[in-house]
Design a protein around this nucleic acid. Sequence first.
DNA 1: GTCTATATAAGGATAGAC
DNA 2: GTCTATCCTTATATAGAC
Lengths: 202, 202
Amino acid sequence: MARIISNKDNNRKEVIILAAARLFREKGFNATGMRDVAGEVGVEAASLYNHIRSKAELLQHICFRIAEEFTSQLNEVEKLHELDSIQKLDSIIRFHVRMWVEKPDEVLVANNESKYLKDPFYDSFQNERRIYVRRLETIIEEGMQKGIIRKIEPYVVVLTVMSAVRGIEFWHRTKKNISAIQLENDMVMMLVDGLRIRDLKA
Amino acid sequence: MARIISNKDNNRKEVIILAAARLFREKGFNATGMRDVAGEVGVEAASLYNHIRSKAELLQHICFRIAEEFTSQLNEVEKLHELDSIQKLDSIIRFHVRMWVEKPDEVLVANNESKYLKDPFYDSFQNERRIYVRRLETIIEEGMQKGIIRKIEPYVVVLTVMSAVRGIEFWHRTKKNISAIQLENDMVMMLVDGLRIRDLKA
DNA sequence: GTCTATATAAGGATAGAC
DNA sequence: GTCTATCCTTATATAGAC
């Protein structure tokens, strides 16, 4: 008989995870104390342990949930056989940009703090990342074979794309007069157009 | 009368700073203990304090030395009036790539761990970065005015370029069969060619 | 300049009352 | 489920002998 988990339980845990994400992003995993997290939630540190097992578990939740979102989206894009490689890459870059724009805390923690994941989790996370990179490389390779992407090392393309969007971290901080849409379009333009094989005319 | 500082003194301090950079990169600033640094150098933790004042001072040295290298190089590039904006940007990207390739420990610490700089130093470092970004933006703006760079938000270009090269962190870890030269050329190709105004023929 | 020993502080996690 | 009190470990930094 499956236990019915109350909404209250889940909400409480969710609130804690998001508070942790915010603080881990701001101060880093190691510099964030459970007392900090508790303060953000509005309870004492000891009370957190009724909802989560440890500080390490908070980091695990943040990292693997984000990883799952990226993987799911890639699954969807790969199914769209009507798109060519450039269009797929376009779509993937836009998804990355949106994730960085909409969930900066969690995405940044998954990028910068995942190295503090404990024993089996760190390897597992790194492995998921490696597989994700491989799948993106495959899309680039297909584009090269079909003659719509210029000769370039696929691994370098993937690294460049995945890192370039990390710049959005700074866009968030400087409340510049640049909209999320413009940010997305300019980044895609820059990253995708450098890959196209040049038309011989027009 | 100026005190003559022996080579031995300087070497010792330099060894400590580089050991710290390696560990700060690998484990992060907060997760690295002075015992770790001492172990790397081959002494006891207490002995470090004959050469440096504090752990915080180690981080300051690493961050500001790297900042200085980037600023100096930009000074040089700005003096080269025979280069157009694209050529200047090309040269700057290549410098960034080389810094990431040749001094990954220090550059990565300056990027990822500088947030742990203490009171006046954090603001000072952030300010140097802001000025650096502004100067790069100016180069992009000039290129747009002269009609060799397409219409795009200069700030987005600078963010993208400065973040894209951070991918080299992963290139270092995966001992891939990609040379530093190819990495550099492919990154420049991708990042610069997305900015050019398209030729009407060939 | 390097060592051993230690002061002092902070952080993760638990015990047990309510 | 939340609180107060506290255990235990770890970490930066200092004191003082050699």
